[in-house]
Amino acid sequence: MSGTVSTALKFAAGLFLVLALIGIAVNVFSPATDAAKIAQTDFSNTTTELKDQKYLVYDNTVISGSQVVNALRKFESEGKSQTLGLYVETGKNSNGAGTWYYSAFDKASDSMTASSTTDLSNTKEVTNAKYINPSGMFDAVVERDSNGVIRAIKFVQQ
Rank of each mutant, 00 (worst) to 15 (best):
V156T: 15
E78D: 15
A129Y: 02
V68W: 10
A8S: 04
R144F: 11
K37W: 04
N128F: 05
A20R: 03
S146G: 14
N128I: 01
Q40E: 10
I38K: 15
A36G: 10
G23P: 05
V142G: 13
V88P: 12
Y55G: 09
L72D: 04
S115N: 08
D145I: 11
A152K: 06
V5K: 07
V156H: 01
G91S: 07
A8K: 06
S111P: 09
R144N: 13
N27Y: 02
A12Y: 04
V28P: 01
K74F: 08
V126H: 03
I153Q: 05
A35N: 10
A108Y: 02
K80R: 15
N27T: 01
Y55T: 02
T113Y: 06
L17P: 12
V126Y: 00
L56T: 00
D119P: 11
P31C: 09
D34E: 12
T4M: 08
G23A: 04
K154T: 09
G14N: 03
V57P: 07
A32I: 14
I150R: 09
T127G: 14
E125Q: 14
K37F: 09
K130D: 14
N45Q: 10
K154W: 05
E49Q: 11
T117A: 15
A108H: 02
G136I: 06
K80M: 15
S77I: 10
I153W: 03
A108K: 10
K54N: 04
N147M: 10
V126D: 00
L15V: 08
A35L: 12
D145F: 06
K92T: 11
G79A: 07
T118G: 14
K10R: 14
D145S: 08
L50M: 02
L19A: 13
S44M: 08
S116V: 15
